[in-house]
Design a protein around this nucleic acid. Structure first.
Lengths: 232, 232
DNA sequence: GGAATAGTGTCTTTCAGACAATATCAC
DNA sequence: GTGATATTGTCTGAAAGACACTATTCC
């Protein structure tokens, strides 16, 4: 076995997670309060170092479990982007692979070793510029990716329980995009995409109003035609 | 300054490039023939180790210049994805940040230190499973990203010279998607998106047929409505 | 004129958006 | 019944796709 052709620099590699959920109709992101320097006391994204022999995706799932108490089958995980500007971590040269995770009404997180507290924070109430490291930039990218993918994928169903109504699905779009959508057009739209929603045959039993049909996510991952965000 | 809370593993970090161009109407990708083990003699994506103190994007531009002879202002660069499965490089634990680069009729590359030869290869003629490392997977992801971004961004103009005709732009779509598009509908479509194309006032002087208006790319980065790929 | 390519007009269908009307529950 | 929510229907305008037609060049 030959040596690498150049003498490579040693990097630390971390995983940072932008974990989104929908809790009581509020779009929330998981943030941790750092208990160690640097940025002690500041809010940050959950994450940590990738271990030797560990796949990047596995590291993301491990951090999800350790710092957020979230099991893999509760979320959809997707790579966001990699951030590695020199100096982004003053301790050493660190490259971080950021991931997006989406889940329905995820549980309250528990404190971890590096983390004084972990909490769900409404996305709209976060000031990205106050986050540790470059996590504000990562969060902004994650928010934009999330909003964009609602348009042309079934991502919104990841924010819903396995069985959901069209109104619950619509609320995901409304809260993430920060808009109001016409319930009648939205209903016709999403039920009209073949394979996107599957009728369960059940109906809601709930106070006030006609009971709604309960659906499950279908096998259609991409939405054609897409659900368009108002304003282009 | 405190120590990192855990003892991080040391990683090598590399940059790999999926460089696309359009040469004489053929959609091509830049590949290099490896002159060193592992995978000596196999085709691979150009790339190399990120240096100490070097930003990830700067490393991509440096590799572009060193291995492809491409200057930064000739291409549009965009991060694709990061690949870091253990064992993907037998020499050491290596995480690679893959980038997409797009340019119009890029120059013939020159051989580099690790590279016996570099060459433009028609994308359709590449068998991804024959590439070194996991570069086949990276190429497949790059191809799909490129095809998808034609729909809703001005990416296609990156494959054209600064001044181009609608027919040249249409050819980019046709070759990358592998389809035929109706010239008349395509013309009406792209000239109808405000800010996408800017008339230069010039016309082509060329044998056969009515001269075509010459356009420049406008400042509109996103296409609304998108140019749809035939077949959903 | 004929061949070739550029560009416009017209028709049909699909779909988004506005909103009226109907359905089915709790009370 | 009233109030609330779900679901369907109807209309209008925008735009995609098919394709006839006109425009301007070279030969």
């Amino acid at each position: 076995m030959s040596r690498p052709p150049t003498s490579p620099t040693a990097f630390g590699v971390t995983t940072d997670l932008v974990v989104f959920t929908m809790h009581e109709g509020i779009w929330e992101v998981l943030l941790v309060r750092r208990s160690e320097d640097p940025y002690r006391g500041r809010l940050a994204l959950p994450g940590g170092f990738v271990e030797a022999g560990e796949d990047l995706e596995d590291a993301a799932y491990r951090e999800l479990r350790e710092e957020a108490g979230v099991e893999p089958h509760h979320v959809v995980l997707e790579q966001l982007r990699t951030y590695g500007t020199p100096g982004r971590d003053e301790r050493m040269r660190v490259v971080t692979v950021a991931w997006l995770a989406f889940g329905a009404d995820l549980p309250m997180p528990v404190a971890g070793v590096d983390v004084a507290s972990a909490e769900w924070v409404p996305v709209d109430s976060v000031d990205p510029s106050t986050l540790a490291f470059d996590h504000g930039e990562i969060l902004r990218d994650g928010v934009e990716r999330c909003r964009a993918k609602l348009e042309y994928t079934n991502l919104a169903t990841s924010f819903c329980d396995p069985e959901f109504t069209v109104a619950e699905l619509r609320q995901v779009y409304e809260r993430v995009w920060g808009v109001r959508l016409d319930p009648r057009n939205f209903h016709r739209k999403v039920t009209g995409v073949p394979g996107f929603l599957v009728e369960s045959g059940q109906r809601t039993t709930r106070g006030g109003g006609r009971p709604a049909m309960i659906y499950r996510a279908g096998d259609q991952l991409r939405l054609h035609p897409p659900v368009m965000r108002p304003g282009s």
